[in-house]
Design a protein around this nucleic acid. Structure first.
Lengths: 343, 343
DNA sequence: CTCATCGTTGTTCACGTTCACAAACGGTGA
DNA sequence: TCACCGTTTGTGAACGTGAACAACGATGAG
């Protein structure tokens, strides 16, 4: 009897399925069917529901859906140093691919280097009930921590550790380093240094391995690689130190930034690249073509990496077989490398 | 009577609050109280619950919580080109601050330049029921689209558009550009070009404004700025074109990458920086100190920007007052700028 | 004419949590 | 002894969606 119409200022909340259903004169289940594109709906009914949705500006409630299906439709990315070009480009590609497949993406980045920071980052992702994990934090410690947690979800790592049981996908770092090293050897260099990345980075290790393997395959004398931190700043200081000896004619740097710093130091030392010293980098960041001199480097297709990564993850979201794929890097020859001076 | 114990392979799903409650011998509500750190719980009970949680490896179900509280505890970031250093650094800082405050972060990046892409990106974020939005996509079109959607949530933009009613926070681009320009004028340059960013980027516009304002304030002759696309590649080609006239002694580039390309072109043209032409950039990306010559540029503190941005967002998540803050940029003098040659 | 079948729609429940409220408990003062 | 109070704990109802199942009308076969 006293069933009054709703007052003007009804509870201000987002419209739900029931609101749509009421407006369209159907049950909420019918609305659900329309949303999920299920068969066996009369065309006219479907259209009426769609109109109602439009009119109310209806948006499915993701939380409710996640609750009932126990699927979050979210992919987690674990990353270190996303300001670097490589990881950033990969993240971009992963996000695009994930979005295209209807997945959302959350990232957690590891700040600092203590292992508690790693655990916290992973925890944040798990709190979000991610359905898959992409690891772009290519440090040993991260993988060890991850292995210790024995997570029950598909994991794709963007660096092959060689030891893990997860899927992994990577640009073949060893091959890349071999290409760079071989290039220098073929130019006639005999005394080549390697400025490597931080010790516990898997990529750094792989590049170092590639360098050492190629050098010994070709019977070249090797010196111990210098361990850097990826920054141009470090490359600069390492360069100043190296110039004291001058017992080399070429340096293979583990990334383009360090190569940039090296070239800076060499010029500051009164020498010239590539006349006195040849430099080869790694990554082919977009700026590398405009360094002075333009940098010879090894190109990695980060975007392709990200795309394939998502394909792997989505494909194997239920299946669980292992897989390891690799993408081939290519050598980009520019002005920073040349035959050594004949003295 | 026939109440058998659970069989071995019980339904494999994550433990819920009820499981914890049963193990601890309390009600689910008590568990909830422990989780949310509410008062009036006996210490002993609390400990028993915590132990049970630990034992079951319990994790609160975020979806269920979001459903009942209608709070997603998620912040959305709308971004373009996250591979650039500036945006990437900001995102990083925002994520850190958000995590510290218990929020998760999702990003959506605008691929392509059609306005449908913008709408889609925003839609993706809204689907996630974000509680706040940070916009790092500094294009007019994005803001126009955003304004047209009249969203009911706190928005912080990392670029001041000057016209919006939202909160905004930015490094003072106009001041930065003025600093750069003034620096060149004070060195004695009179004929200065500006290599600007893409036309619909707000930052590009602001830097151009700063440049033009400073030039006219100091009664310098001005030429129309050249509109670039932020890339080193474009800087290079613009440089080659400009060298045909040589009616200038300095160029202020709207970012460091374009400055890098310019310097490359100038050297290719047989001239020297800064002897023949002075160059000033903008951003102070980490590599800029190691360019050849090291680049004079304007530093923006992106990390600070990200941090303040989150403070603003979290502070105003319920309040709704407007606010516009700005961070001061600083000029970093390096080797790429010097007094013009006296001819 | 009756019954089985198929396409379409509705009803009810469950998901895991928080909120509002009620109940039990122990202590205190009249 | 009893009413009252504060602290601690439990009960039941939501939140919005999808899944299982039931119900309905129309159609066709026997």
């Amino acid at each position: 009897m006293a069933q009054e119409p709703e007052p003007v200022a009804k509870k201000s909340r987002a419209p739900s399925m029931h609101d749509v259903a009421r407006l369209a004169g159907v049950s909420h289940q019918t609305v659900s069917r329309v949303i999920n594109d299920l068969p066996n709906i009369r065309e006219e009914t479907k259209q009426r529901v769609l109109d109602s949705m439009e009119q109310l500006q209806y948006r499915p409630n993701r939380a409710a859906r996640a609750l009932v299906t126990s699927r979050s439709r979210t992919i987690g990315i674990l990353t270190a140093s996303r300001t670097n070009y490589g990881p950033a480009a990969s993240i971009q590609a992963i996000e695009d691919a994930a979005n295209a497949a209807g997945y959302a993406v959350t990232t957690a980045s590891i700040s600092g280097y203590e292992s508690t920071a790693i655990v916290r980052a992973i925890d944040r992702l798990l709190d979000q009930a991610i359905e898959g994990l992409v690891v772009i934090a290519p440090q040993r410690r991260v993988f060890d921590t991850l292995a210790g947690m024995s997570l029950r979800l598909p994991i794709v790592t963007l660096q092959s550790t060689g030891t893990d049981g997860d899927k992994s996908l990577s640009v073949d770092q060893i091959l890349g380093a071999r290409l760079a090293t071989r290039h220098l050897i073929e130019l006639g260099h005999r005394y080549i240094y390697h400025l490597a990345g931080p010790q516990d980075w898997i990529e750094a290790e792989a590049r170092m391995t590639g360098f050492l393997d190629e050098m010994s395959d070709q019977d070249m004398p090797t010196t111990a690689p210098i361990l850097g931190d990826w920054t141009a700043e470090f490359g600069y200081f390492a360069g100043r130190e190296l110039l004291r000896m001058r017992d080399f004619t070429a340096i293979f740097a583990a990334n383009d930034q360090m190569a940039l710093g090296l070239m800076h130091a060499i010029r500051d030392g009164g020498l010239e690249v590539p006349r006195d010293i040849s430099i080869v980098g790694f990554d082919d960041i977009p700026d590398a073509a405009h360094f002075w001199p333009p940098l010879t480097t090894v190109r990695q297709d980060f975007a392709e990496l990200g795309r394939r990564c998502m394909a792997l993850l989505l494909g194997g979201l239920e299946a669980g077989e292992e897989y390891a794929g690799s993408i081939l890097p290519t050598l980009i020859e520019r002005g920073s490398s040349a035959a050594p001076q004949t003295r």
